[in-house]
Write a protein that binds this DNA or RNA. Structure first.
Length: 668
RNA sequence: GCGCCCUUAGCUCAAUUGGAUAGAGCGUCUGGCUACGGACCAGGAGGCUGGGGGUUCGAGUCCUCCAGGGCGCGCCA
């Protein structure tokens, strides 16, 4: 990663403040100036401090600058006071560019912090009910989660990606009913059904839902099935397991199309079957938060006390049932048990089996019962983290809060500090016109609405695989149009990469707490602020070197090497002045922001920050590309400088795209 | 009833967490190179940041009231 002088500058300012005013301050805010003539970084510290010290900001700023000039900072060439009292820092361009060139040698084997259990973080995402095909809403979850995992991992932290499979819930029970009551199929027959199995279940699920309405007999059957699933005995449980397994494999395959992978799939059935919950309750019952209701409305239930806690004020029902009077644990209770294991508050009782092996490079494991075929215990391998993120939509905030309350109570008692963060995001809906093209009935009242909610139960939604198919086809068409000589296989592969870029960028470019009104036409667009625009910038950077090789017969390495030796370190500063240099410099300054952007992305849990940054980089490069040709340039020094800049961009921009999971095509 | 979220250009969204002249994309209008590929670039028009009050050197951002919209509060998951 390119060195960010932000921290260095901030530290220098802290020291300057201490020396000049004998005040100790926290890390001051360091901003990017709105205009280039204000320098490369702006620190409004004198504005803030001036007030508390009762001194004119500009005067204070002058004293600070005096000190800073007397105690130079490597990389900063000069300071300036501007506006009401900003400290503006101007970088030593030659020094910076020299540093950046240094990163080119080590960028591939960047120094990563050693991974250890102490720093392990668990990112849970996807966690789709295994009863039907994944839709666009699930993709938002998976893309956010996968990108978060990539970003955290890039910080040298060992990330374990988990996907929770709720295979014992009503949603699966409904599809079990569908197969038995509507289709008249048993487990064996269902196992033999052709693909796409998840599509078949999508339709079946809506059929059952309709049938279940006002049908008390069927509703009673569902309760039986549910019990059977939870006990994991009987033909319904066998059928449920087949459904959950087949659907999960479909989901894994869908996500693999987007480059999204998992380390571990934990099945709720195993949490229940291995009595993780029973142990969890034992532990929980010692806490004053958990009690057994004897009499009253919740007679015979185990309850969690929420009243009086922040965030739970004035609820109609202040407490939450954990175990029903019939002895069955609720969903949130099982989730609490799962999270206790996740964070090492319960022993690892699971066995693990290799579930999905992908291209010999990655294995996704799945929880299993000890003693079952192909399963073995793997002590210390999974779970037992001290912190983690749950990527779950905002509607589950209430339940996530309850999990948090349990974890807090337990970690206090056991003196183990656990950090559990709900990475919440808003839902994906459909624009009315997209809903209509999909054949979803839109009521007259809803036509002017900004969006129409999706409904898995009714089958209203955009299936992930359908969308990917359309995008891939469109990508391939566009590639073929521009590259008539390419063979079909390559066109198809490029179409695939473009589809992934388009979809992934689309799903992370919005702030997470904004409802996305999914519009098919907009998502199919490859122009403007889209994934393909970013990919196009990378392709252009690449094609410069391809052309250079074609014309000069020199490899990228040789070309870059020659350019570097032409611009000796000492001379760089003098080359980096003037109008052209200032425009090139803009690109460098933006590249330097990456470290800061990643920091912001993680602390705010806002992936869109990184996405917007990537878009800004692509824009800056396209500007440079258009304005400053390389092959045509005859001045060798200028050409060398541009070559190096294009190369630096290419290397670092590829890194940014890979953080976003966006493939970098060689041509488009 | 209580809680959380949203409201910024015609549309979809940003705005470095309180900083300098509120920026992008789409759409619209005007212009661009025999090419390192036009999935691009340059420029124009387009804003009382939903409304009122407050906090301060400084507010799209914070506090408060109001309006409109969404979500959540189950012995469902």
């Amino acid at each position: 990663m390119i060195v960010d002088l932000r921290r260095v500058v901030a530290a220098a300012v802290v020291k300057a403040v201490a020396e000049v005013t004998s005040e100790t301050i926290d890390i001051p805010s360091v901003e990017d100036p709105p205009r280039p003539e204000f320098g490369d970084l702006a620190i409004p510290v004198a504005l803030e401090l001036g007030r508390s010290l009762g001194r004119p900001p500009r005067q204070l700023a002058e004293e600070l600058i005096e000190w800073l000039e007397a105690n130079p900072v490597a990389g900063v060439s000069r300071w300036q006071i501007a506006g009401p009292g900003y400290l503006n820092a101007f970088f030593d361009r030659g020094w910076v560019f020299d540093q950046i060139l240094g990163t080119l040698d080590s960028v591939s084997d960047e120094q990563r912090l050693p991974a250890s259990v102490d720093t392990k973080q668990i990112v849970e995402h996807t966690s789709i009910n295994p009863n039907k095909a994944a839709h666009i809403g699930h993709l938002r979850n998976a893309c956010l989660g996968d990108t978060l995992a990539r970003v955290v991992r890039s910080q040298g932290i060992d990330v374990e990606v988990q996907n929770y499979i709720d295979d014992t819930g009503v949603q699966v029970a409904d599809v079990v009913l569908g197969f038995t009551e509507i289709r008249g199929l048993d487990a064996e027959a269902v196992a033999a059904l052709p693909d796409p199995f998840d599509y078949a279940c999508w339709d079946l699920y809506t059929e059952v839902t309709e049938l279940l309405e006002n049908n008390e007999v069927l509703q009673a059957r569902r309760r039986e099935v549910l019990l059977s699933l939870e006990r994991q005995s009987g033909p319904e449980a066998e059928l449920g397991a087949i459904i959950a397994d087949r659907i999960t494999r479909c989901h894994i395959a869908t996500m693999e199309r987007l480059g999204i992978r998992y380390d571990l799939l934990v099945r709720e059935g195993d949490v229940v079957g291995l009595e993780l919950w029973a142990t969890a309750l034992e532990r929980l019952s010692t806490s004053d938060r958990v009690y057994f209701a004897d009499g009253g409305k919740h007679d015979g239930c185990w309850m969690m006390r929420l009243e009086g806690l922040p965030g739970f004020e004035d609820l109609e029902e202040p407490n939450k049932v954990l175990v029903r009077s019939n002895g069955a644990a609720t969903y949130v209770a099982k989730d609490i048990a799962y999270h206790m294991w996740k964070y090492g508050l319960l022993d690892d009782v699971f066995a693990y089996e290799s579930y999905a092996e992908i291209l010999d490079t990655h294995v996704a494991y799945r929880s299993a019962r000890p003693g079952s075929a192909n399963a073995r215990s793997m002590p210390g391998r999974f779970g037992g983290a001290r912190s983690g993120f749950n990527v779950i939509d905002v509607r589950q905030s209430y339940l996530q809060q309850i999990v948090g309350v349990a974890l807090t109570a337990l970690s206090r008692d056991s003196e183990i500090e656990v950090s559990h963060t709900h990475f919440s995001y808003e839902m994906v809906a459909l624009t009315p016109r997209t809903a209509e093209t999909l054949g979803i009935p839109v009521a007259k009242d809803d036509q002017c609405k900004a969006y129409i909610e999706m409904s898995g139960r009714r089958g209203y939604g955009v299936k992930a695989d359908d969308l990917l198919d359309v995008l891939e086809k469109r990508g391939a068409t566009e590639v073929a149009k521009r590259n008539p000589a390419l063979d079909a296989a390559e066109v198809e592969e490029l179409g695939r990469q473009i589809a992934v870029g388009a979809l992934r960028y689309f799903l992370v470019k919005f702030s997470r707490n904004k409802v996305i009104a999914f519009d098919l036409e907009e998502a199919l667009s490859f122009e403007g602020e889209t994934g393909p625009y970013l990919q196009y910038a990378a392709v252009r950077a690449h094609s410069i070197f391809a052309k250079l090789e074609e014309r000069w017969g020199k490899s990228e390495e040789e070309v870059v090497g020659e350019a570097r030796s032409m611009l000796v370190a000492g001379r760089l500063g003098s080359e980096l002045v003037g109008e052209e240099a200032s425009e090139l410099w803009n690109l460098i300054v933006q590249l330097m922001r990456l470290e800061y952007v990643i920091e912001q992305t993680v602390t705010n849990l806002e992936i869109s920050t990184l996405a917007k940054h990537a878009f800004g980089l692509a824009q800056a490069f396209n500007h440079f590309y258009h304005r400053y040709p390389i092959l045509k340039e005859e001045n060798e020094t200028k050409r060398a400088l541009r070559i190096l800049l294009a190369y630096v961009f290419r290397v670092h921009f590829s890194e940014v795209l890979s953080l976003l999971g966006i493939p970098v095509p060689e041509r488009m």
